[in-house]
Amino acid sequence: MSGHEYKIIFTGTMGAGKTTAIAALSEIPPVSTDVPNSDLGAFQKATTTAAFDYGELTLDGGNRLRLYGTPGQERFRFMWSILARGALGVIVLVDNSRPDPLADLGIYIDNFADVVATGCLTIAVGRLDTHPDPSLDVYYEWLLARDLAIPVLAADVRRRDDVLVLVDTLFSLIEAKVIAAEEADAMAPGAAVGD
């Protein structure tokens, strides 16, 4: 499984680090659609993503990832479904310093339900060092209560290595799904038999 291109999505609330994560990873100058943020009450940040971020990454083995970041705010929800088209996996960035990070997570789990159903999802919890609650165990319990078995990792998306671990984790899920689909095709009645 090499030489393929895959589209993956970074999503999460405003200020969770989607633009930073893509900038940390991309081997091309990232494409950004940042505009001035006029909602300083929601987040003290000079700019915000209005449409998407875009970057590219070549993995060991030759597979290429197209990295898309979504706008965080719910008023841009229409962009989430546009960007999700053709995506094989989603990384949800959760900001643990926000008032209710589990509720935040629920918004993205619900809105990316099609991808969630495939199991190709990874959750990254940020700012755990300064805001340890809820812990990763609480996240796992929250997910299990919803019958979801999804990897949850602590991450500082300013660190390239942390973002790479997220992408590797997601990509291993995608890879397993692709291999399982290929094996199912091979086992299907009428499949070509090799020599």
Binding site: V31, T33, D34, A50, A51, R75, F76, F78, M79
Partner: peptide, 20 residues
């Protein structure tokens, strides 16, 4: 409100594409 949000995205894409 929906038009305002979509306008923001669309114009941001136009501006980025012009710039790129």
């Amino acid at each position: 409100a929906k038009v305002a949000a979509m306008t923001s995205s669309l114009h941001a894409v136009g501006a980025t594409m012009s710039d790129e």
